[in-house]
Design a protein around this nucleic acid. Structure first.
Lengths: 207, 207
DNA sequence: AACAATGTTGAGTGATCATTCAAATGAATT
DNA sequence: AATTCATTTGAATGATCACTCAACATTGTT
């Protein structure tokens, strides 16, 4: 059993348990039992439970591209299509869990952003990764969106819909609030594309 | 010191501490100290910490109208204006807290929706209250919005923007993600109103 | 004034919390 | 084979956890 194996198993188990039960709701003893590791081993790699949490957040950050974004970009070419492919893939991930778990990062953000120093920065880094991809896609959409529609703001809105929609889906144990929000976001983008199309053909008048 | 006073002080203190530190992050002993109450007193009114949480959520539900919605309706007549007045009032409330605290209900929703039975139902009841008002306003907007724009879905979107926007504002310690999302939501509503106006004057062509 | 019901006191319960550490083991280098 | 360093073992630590309870005080009823 190599070094990397044990450390990875600890990180993976901790990530799962923090996601399922929250940080304060997860005891170190539970992590030890489920990862099949002794206390000393864990504390050999991580000086504290908090350091373990930071490791988990670092891990999420590294997994963002290979696990989340690469599949989306592989499945969809169209840049605006990628935005909604991401929203769909997110839904496909959380819906089968019966709405028993929220966003792994968002949960930790709300539970700990203020009480633990360092957490907020890593949460922000994670969100920056997510919104960075969305913003990149929206920029690639070029003049299909109105020039005055701020890509950064739109990317924020997309993330907002993901996180807020999942929160309400969880509270209601139903995908409906998420789906409703995504459908409205879709309509918004359709209207923006209409507007941009009209701007591209100045003969079309109206706005 | 009447009965109601002690019980209220416990509920108020618990609500504040749960909001600041989360449910699992708040010890009963802290509640006792800050509410200046003995353990036996608390357990006289609430059989468990969980029951206390349910009391807190009930309290939020009862305060929704007098504390949140009545001021909005008093300050703004226009139904669509009320939606954005609510979003603004929400911002005015959380921004001065330096983004150290999220939505009291949303936080608990994400921390506990699954682990504690009963919590989810009360969280849902709270969210239903919020979205109920928004949906009512959107219905009052009548034909200012397109007939095929589902008012319930739009209300979900508004709540989604509130919760998701605040989550990201907190993670970034800045109101910017919230403001960006609200601005985009504003633009969406503007586009919807344009569309509805065109539908009302069929001579206007185009869509 | 007597009584019952409701509310309060606060020390004490066992369980679980995150964490420590000296000793044993494993792997890599010389 | 000897040495070194990283890793693992697992029992033990004191602190804090949610919670209990028997005694006492207060309030309301008759």
């Amino acid at each position: 059993m190599t070094t990397a194996e044990t450390k990875d198993r600890i990180l993976e188990t901790a990530a799962r348990l923090f996601h399922e039960q929250g940080f304060n709701g997860t005891g170190v003893s539970t992590i030890l039992r489920e990862a099949d590791v002794n206390a000393g081993s864990l504390y050999h790699f991580f000086p504290s439970k908090e350091a373990l949490l930071l490791g988990v957040l670092e891990r999420y950050r590294h997994l963002l591209h290979p696990v989340v974004m690469a599949p989306v970009e592989a499945a969809t070419e169209d840049p605006i299509g990628r935005v909604f492919a991401l929203l769909q893939q997110y839904r496909d991930w959380f819906a089968p869990l019966n709405f028993t778990m929220g966003c792994p990062i968002g949960n930790l953000a709300l539970e700990l952003a203020d009480s633990l120093p360092g957490v907020r920065e890593l949460v922000r880094a994670n969100f920056d990764g997510w919104s960075g991809f969305v913003e990149k896609w929206l920029k690639e959409a070029g003049d299909r969106l109105p020039a005055d529609a701020d890509r950064g703001q739109l990317a924020h809105l997309v993330l907002t819909v993901m996180e807020g929609g999942l929160m309400q889906a969880r509270a209601r144990a139903s995908a409906e609030p998420y789906d409703a929000s995504v459908r409205q976001l879709r309509r918004y983008f359709d209207l923006l594309e209409d507007q941009a199309a009209r701007q591209r053909r100045p003969g079309g008048r109206r706005r």
